[in-house]
């Protein structure tokens, strides 16, 4: 297949999955809603009167208060995590780098948990988000400067650093769980598992804004990311200010991961699976890769969330559990393949 044909196929597939996933998510649930009612309600919202729109207010509020914000949250958080993964892989020069694996997500979760326990969370959602961002930033900086040698990161070093960061953040979370009151304790457990349950429009808006900024910044840096694949020295010879690129990228990763974790907890492996799948289809050039990852991440989370809340009747599985269930084996497969190819754990 030619490149453009592949890109077209991918776009159509993603669009179909996206629309299908959104409609299915809106329709399915404890209160059944027909697809026609969903379409009608959406049309009415943008000012087009029609006969399909639901007449019962319980249906209308189920859609607009519960399901739509949750779908929107899945879209933006999926996009944020997948783009964070793509950016991280670009600056680490390693396709196995991922916010969850190397401990950025748990760093952010630790930040959020600290916010809850010391009570700044009372200042509002943005206080949690801010501390989640700081936690994520510190973790990214740590992993980045510890695990790289000669402009690249070896798999072993990366994973070992990830283990160390995850262990430390895990201990921090456990300590906070220990000292926290029962209310905070529940909130912290929520962060560790990850869930889109109870998303509100206000939260969606914050995540959407941050994601938009992060995505735009990542797209501006798409060409330098391509050049960075040649190694740091070669990128510098081609005019890339590597030091600045590094810092900006770390901030982007921390922002995207931090905001996702702040509102939805740890949802691991999205940043690993999505960019990898997209790279296999459309190749590694970052401009297309970042756009495709954003859309693909949204699609993946909408579908995962649908699964999470329908697989156990009446129950709401934490989505983070689900993505790890799928992402864990996938990560193992990538690791295994990379080991086979390079003849070792290099």
């Amino acid at each position: 297949m030619t490149h453009s044909l592949r890109a077209l196929t991918l776009t159509l597939t993603l669009a179909a999955l996206l629309v299908g996933g959104i409609v299915a998510s809106a329709v399915l649930g404890q209160l059944p809603v027909s697809p026609a009612e969903v379409g009608g309600s959406l049309l009415r919202a943008i000012g087009i009167g029609n006969d399909w729109a639901p007449s019962e207010s319980i249906v209308e509020s189920t859609l607009w208060v519960v399901r739509f914000p949750r779908i929107a949250m899945a879209l933006v958080v999926g996009a944020a995590l997948a783009v964070a993964g793509a950016v991280m892989q670009a600056i680490f020069g390693n396709p196995l780098a991922e916010p969850g694996v190397v401990g950025v997500s748990s760093g952010a979760a630790l930040g959020a948990a600290i916010a809850i326990v010391i009570g700044v969370a009372a200042l509002g959602d943005s206080a949690i988000a801010l501390l989640a961002f700081v936690g994520g930033l510190l973790a990214t900086l740590l992993v980045y400067f510890v695990s790289r040698a000669n402009g690249r990161t070896e798999v072993v070093t990366l994973l070992l650093t990830g283990i160390a960061v995850n262990a430390f953040a895990g201990a921090g979370l456990a300590f906070l769980l220990f000292v926290a009151e029962s209310g905070s304790r529940e909130q912290i457990v929520f962060w560790q598992l990850g869930s889109l349950n109870g998303s509100r429009w206000g939260e969606v808006l914050i995540v959407a804004l941050v994601t938009a900024v992060g995505l735009a910044a990542a797209l501006v840096l798409a060409r330098p990311f391509d050049l960075l694949a040649l190694g740091e020295r070669n990128a510098r010879h081609l005019g890339v200010n590597v030091e600045r690129l590094r810092i900006v990228s770390i901030v982007i990763v921390a922002l995207l991961t931090g905001v996702a974790v702040a509102f939805c907890g740890i949802i691991a492996f999205v940043g690993l699976v999505v960019p990898h799948a997209m790279r296999m289809v459309i190749g590694p050039a970052h401009r297309q890769l970042i756009v495709a990852s954003a859309v693909g991440g949204g699609v993946l989370l909408v579908l995962s969330d649908l699964l999470a809340r329908s697989v156990v009747a009446g129950g709401d599985l934490p989505i983070g559990l689900l993505t790890s269930l799928v992402g864990g084996p996938f990560f193992f497969y990538l690791l295994f393949r990379q080991r086979k190819r390079s003849g070792g754990w290099a």
Partner: peptide
């Protein structure tokens, strides 16, 4: 950096590429 890149090119000894770019892209 940007101006220097128009003045001189360097072939280094280390030439691995992190992702599977096509030769024409490289």
């Amino acid at each position: 950096h940007a101006e220097l890149a128009r003045l001189r090119a360097v072939l280094t000894q280390e030439n691995s590429v992190s992702f599977p770019f096509r030769v024409s892209e490289v």
